[in-house]
Amino acid sequence: MFEQHKRAIRIALGDLFQRPLASLMTVLVLAIALALPATLLALLNLGEQLTSEWSHERTVTMFLKADVDAEAALLLSATIEEIEGVDSTELRTSADALAEFRLYSGFGDALDALDENPLPNHILIHPSEISDNDAIGELVSHLATLPESDLVEYDQAWVERLNSFTETARRFADALALALAIAVVMIIGNTIRLEIATRHSEIEITRLVGGTDGFIRRPFLYTGMLYGFSGALLGWLLVSLLLLFLKSPLHDLEILYATSLPLNPFDLQRLAILLPAGTLLGMAGAVLTVGRHLATIQPE
């Protein structure tokens, strides 16, 4: 039995390397089909992480009138911290805002051309844990009545929009993953169908000398698994390279929002999912094809 598995693997490998270019093309197509949903899912996880962080971070921003100087702003900030339902406040002076803008916008030089700092002082107000949206709403209207206040912003709507967007995107990703899994099964099935056709006479003769269905089927199953495995391996590499490419813009995002985005391009956990998934899909493609085609080849 062990001998027969060794033989089957040898034949499967032999077939793969017989026409290396054609095999490589097939593996590449499989890799792309597997990499696409894997990349999408990785990005979605990232997006979901970000929105969940943002939706917990319920911050009210109060922009101050231009005539409020830094000292008065600091005082105001301390006063607001005492209001019921407020956990803490942070003062961002116009100088802070300018430095941040300079760092991330890339318009630093343009800013230098201005005589005055156009950015206002503002106070970030973090409501306490227990405050619900209504309480925050009241707080916002109260803050808006303060004489120093220019504009008070509390916008959860966009977080909700983002949420429903990622929800939709996740469904799309799931459907895409399913469709591409079916495509992988069909591509491998078709490759094996051609393999069976080229080995028609060998199958016939093997039947003549008493080869069982299992013996005849085995090399094709290994071929399917080998294609699935190779496609998954290359697919993982593709995902990894793509994410690596996104790493540096994402890093900027991390600094900007002071969060950590756990993006690990060469994620071994992803590999641990992709490899068995690819191998199984390959086997499924092989089983389906072999089941339909081998029985029709009988010795003359």
Binding site: E204, I205, L208, G210, G211, T212, F215
Partner: peptide, 17 residues
């Protein structure tokens, strides 16, 4: 298959690979 293993077969057209 197990029956065929008991029967060696030879053909005019050889049927070799």
């Amino acid at each position: 298959p197990f029956h065929r293993r008991k029967v060696g077969m030879i053909f005019q057209d050889h049927r070799l690979l």
